[in-house]
Amino acid sequence: MSLNGISELIEKLTARGARTVALQFPEGLKRKAGEYARALHDTGFSVIVSGDPCYGACDLALETLASADVLVHFGHAPVDNQPRVIFEPYRVDFDPSVLEKALPLLSRHTIGLVTTVQHVHLIPAMEAYLRSRGFDSRVAPGSGRTPHPGQVLGCCFTAAKIPGAEEILFVGTGVFHPVGMALTTGLNVIALDPLAGTAEEVSSEALRRKRFAVMEKARGAKSVGIIVSTKQGQQRMELARHLASLSPDAVIVTMREVSPDELLNLGFGCYVNTACPRLAYDDQVRFPVPVLSPQEFEIICGRRNWDEYAIDEIP
């Protein structure tokens, strides 16, 4: 949503009878907080802005909501039912003809089309463009944590598991999503950055090699901390209990923010992450000791074969 859509948000808040409104923004949108706060204040609302880090719809500012009638969470789609939260999308447009950049890399006829929530409103236009170029594009329906057709999250690649798809075209920024899809589906994945206008074929082998090195380093750990997030959308205590049962050296540790300093202070030889799956994959270079995914810990405990390696997801 652009600031020009503030009138629709005001209508939603008025319909709920809200007087005090909490606002939460992901890192890329935080600089818009002041503009939204002023616009709502000028309309008669009392406004509180959450300044804490926000990593997705799984990371709601519930402490701030405790002092407000409604929390407006910008930039993400809901991952569960939150009656006192309004999820406001932040749409990013582009010309679907930019898909032309990816066409030389597509080697199959039947293409699975996936993107992030910022671009899901353009799925029909992208499908039409691919059809006009002779491709059979297929889009998975929305479900669970990804309610929009074709939507993927960094922790959920369900939309990439498309029956009949021979290849995946990911439209979005970064390589984590397409690497995750390559690991999850076993299919060739082409990543198109629609803002930069660049396309590349993505391989999961580099990630596999890096993760194998982390796992080997973790084998010598004398103590293991099983991290459980206290954030409502990331909390996986049942999984943590299962993982803790695999080793007599494992202890469950609850945390809200998983940071290198806190892991260093706790002093475990390695950690297993059941919070946001991207922590283990994205932030390993910052952590003082190995941080494994649940599947990787199962491998080093002998409960899963290396051939069964899978990327961690929250379904």
Rank of each mutant, 00 (worst) to 15 (best):
227 I>R: 03
56 G>M: 14
171 V>W: 01
63 E>G: 10
237 M>N: 05
196 A>Q: 15
88 E>P: 03
46 S>E: 15
29 L>V: 07
162 I>V: 08
102 A>C: 02
291 V>R: 05
62 L>V: 07
139 V>T: 03
290 P>Q: 05
133 R>E: 11
285 V>D: 15
286 R>G: 01
95 D>R: 01
239 L>S: 09
3 L>N: 07
110 T>D: 11
48 I>G: 03
309 Y>V: 07
129 Y>T: 07
74 F>E: 07
236 R>M: 13
191 A>E: 07
175 V>M: 15
69 D>P: 00
54 C>I: 05
174 G>K: 06
153 L>A: 02
6 I>E: 06
293 S>C: 02
39 A>P: 03
274 T>R: 02
215 M>S: 13
186 G>D: 06
51 G>E: 08
32 K>P: 00
263 L>E: 09
168 I>H: 04
16 R>Q: 12
139 V>P: 01
232 Q>W: 09
148 H>M: 14
144 G>Q: 04
227 I>T: 10
54 C>G: 05
255 M>I: 12
160 A>T: 02
150 G>T: 03
131 R>N: 09
64 T>S: 14
128 A>T: 09
268 F>G: 08
225 G>D: 08
307 D>C: 11
168 I>Q: 01
282 D>P: 01
258 V>F: 05
128 A>H: 11
70 V>R: 02
155 C>I: 14
87 F>S: 04
25 F>D: 12
119 H>S: 08
180 G>C: 01
64 T>D: 13
245 S>E: 12
35 E>G: 04
168 I>W: 03
113 L>S: 00
226 I>Q: 07
282 D>E: 15
34 G>E: 09
76 H>C: 05
6 I>L: 12
9 L>N: 05
39 A>I: 08
193 D>M: 01
175 V>F: 12
52 D>F: 03
271 Y>L: 09
223 S>H: 05
239 L>P: 02
263 L>H: 05
205 E>G: 02
160 A>C: 02
216 E>K: 11
215 M>C: 09
181 M>D: 04
306 W>A: 14
19 R>Q: 10
9 L>W: 05
35 E>F: 06
133 R>Q: 13
310 A>V: 12
94 F>Y: 15
303 R>D: 08
256 R>Q: 09
50 S>T: 03
102 A>M: 10
188 N>Q: 14
179 V>I: 12
71 L>E: 06
205 E>A: 13
158 T>E: 10
276 C>H: 06
110 T>Q: 05
200 E>T: 14
200 E>P: 00
267 G>V: 06
232 Q>M: 08
118 Q>K: 11
315 P>Q: 09
253 V>C: 10
149 P>H: 04
164 G>Y: 07
88 E>F: 10
20 T>G: 01
42 D>A: 14
169 L>E: 10
39 A>V: 01
48 I>N: 01
72 V>Q: 04
110 T>L: 03
99 L>H: 00
28 G>H: 03
60 L>D: 10
150 G>F: 04
70 V>E: 00
227 I>D: 11
93 D>M: 05
278 R>Q: 10
182 A>G: 02
264 L>H: 07
143 S>W: 07
296 E>Y: 00
54 C>P: 04
37 A>P: 06
196 A>M: 13
280 A>W: 11
65 L>E: 03
